[in-house]
């Protein structure tokens, strides 16, 4: 399945709109990771635990969105947008949404 954050897909034309598809997740890391991040905040540098948290959350949200698109029988999801919100300390909410469409190859 093609996923893009653009409104169109190069090399294809959109033939049918299947509608909005969405997926979200709220995830957190275990307390050890929070303590490690707290210590790392004294000396600076990347907080790898939190980067991982965001990567996992984003993957999960996209997968849920794709599952919905598959259910609708779509070829692609276009104009994908992500929003985040602060739920509680050390946790991330990631919400992915886009438009499921049918494509036809051109040229």
């Amino acid at each position: 399945m093609i996923i893009t954050n653009t409104e169109t897909v190069t090399g294809y034309e959109i033939t049918e709109m299947k509608g909005l598809v969405q997926g979200n997740t709220v995830r957190t890391k275990h307390a050890g990771r929070d303590i490690a991040a707290g210590l790392k905040n004294l000396v600076g540098g990347e907080l790898k635990g939190y980067t991982e948290l965001l990567t996992e959350s984003r993957r999960e949200a996209v997968q849920r969105m794709m599952a919905q698109a598959q259910q609708l029988g779509a070829d692609a999801v276009v104009n994908v947008r992500f929003t985040t919100s602060a739920v509680t300390a050390g946790a991330a909410e990631l919400y992915a949404y886009g438009t499921a469409v049918m494509l036809r190859k051109i040229g």
Partner: peptide, 26 residues
Amino acid sequence: KTFPMAAAGVQDPAIVMSEVVIGSDY
């Protein structure tokens, strides 16, 4: 939002995502 200079008839486009968290120091 368009695909400037896109080559025709090759690989399908795909979304790419990255995340970075950088801590402050004291």
